[in-house]
Computed example of a mutant assay.
Amino acid sequence: MTRLISTGREGLGYPDRGATARLPLPAGYNHLHHRTRIGHGRAAFEAAGTAVTTFHAHRTSGMLVQAEEGAVRPGGRVIVGIGVGPLRIDAPCEVIWTAYEPARVGFAYGTLTGHPECGEESFVVEIDPDGTVWFTVTAFSRPNTWYTRLAGPVIPFLQLRYARWLGRHVRRLAAAA
């Protein structure tokens, strides 16, 4: 069951909370939907789901992740960063919803104050009835800082590149299990 929450905390900077759990995505944002075939079978599904919901996939893809240990939970806060020293960009987020279902595991986080973008992104692993395992990244976002506005169309391109890169890491982690 997908669990949506509203924490009532300040900082979530967009009105469309939980929109990655349903379609269509809200207007006025850049949209991303990327699906990667991960493998086949229950073992691949479980390994991929664990890698996604513990941020192991994010960490092995090169992201710096500061989050609570264990599986993600609604309301949990996370900072995802990239770069080093003065070139490091930190992106604070809050987990908006989670899914821990027999054929679907994943979560979405929404941007908090200080994030370079404004919006939401979900990371979901699914297993089809035939046993095929898929990893899907769905997002809606728009620039939230001067430098992301200045970057213009480069940001959606980089987001798609990262979704593909993350999919390859989820596939590798599932195959190693």
Rank of each mutant, 00 (worst) to 15 (best):
V105L: 11
V65K: 11
L12F: 12
F55D: 05
T98I: 07
T53K: 01
N144M: 07
F55H: 11
P24K: 01
L112M: 15
L64H: 15
I82V: 14
H31A: 09
F107S: 05
H34K: 11
H56K: 12
P26D: 01
R3P: 05
R172M: 00
G152A: 15
T98L: 02
G114A: 08
W97E: 08
V78W: 04
H40E: 12
T145Y: 06
G152F: 13
R42F: 07
A175C: 03
T53I: 12
A174H: 08
G119Y: 02
A175W: 01
G28Y: 08
Y29S: 02
W97H: 09
Y29A: 02
A47N: 04
L32T: 02
P102F: 01
L160N: 14
T60N: 08
R168M: 08
P92H: 11
A43C: 06
Y147H: 07
L64V: 14
P26Y: 06
A177P: 07
G13K: 00
A48C: 11
P129V: 03
T50Q: 10
L4N: 09
A176H: 11
R149S: 15
V80L: 06
T7M: 04
I82Q: 10
I155R: 12
V72C: 09
L173K: 09
W97M: 06
T111G: 12
H56L: 12
G83Y: 02
T138I: 03
I127D: 00
W146S: 13
S6E: 12
L160G: 13
Y14C: 02
H58P: 09
T54W: 10
V78H: 08
V154M: 14
T138D: 01
D16G: 00
F55T: 05
A177G: 15
R172C: 01
P143W: 01
T60Y: 03
Q159P: 08
V125A: 00
P143M: 05
R17T: 13
H34E: 15
V137C: 12
P156M: 07
A21I: 02
Y162I: 09
V78F: 03
A175V: 01
Q159E: 14
R149N: 11
P156S: 08
R88K: 08
Y147G: 03
R164H: 11
R149D: 08
R142I: 05
V65H: 13
G152L: 11
A71Y: 12
L112E: 15
R22K: 10
T136S: 07
S61Q: 12
E101Q: 13
L150F: 15
R3A: 08
P153R: 10
A151S: 05
G39Y: 00
W97G: 06
V95C: 12
A174S: 10
H56N: 10
T54S: 10
L32F: 00
I5A: 13
G18W: 04
T7E: 00
L112N: 13
H34I: 13
A57I: 08
I5R: 12
A151D: 05
E94A: 04
L150H: 12
I5P: 02
M63V: 14
E94V: 09
G81L: 04
F135P: 03
R9H: 09
P24R: 01
I38A: 01
D130W: 00
G106D: 11
V95T: 10
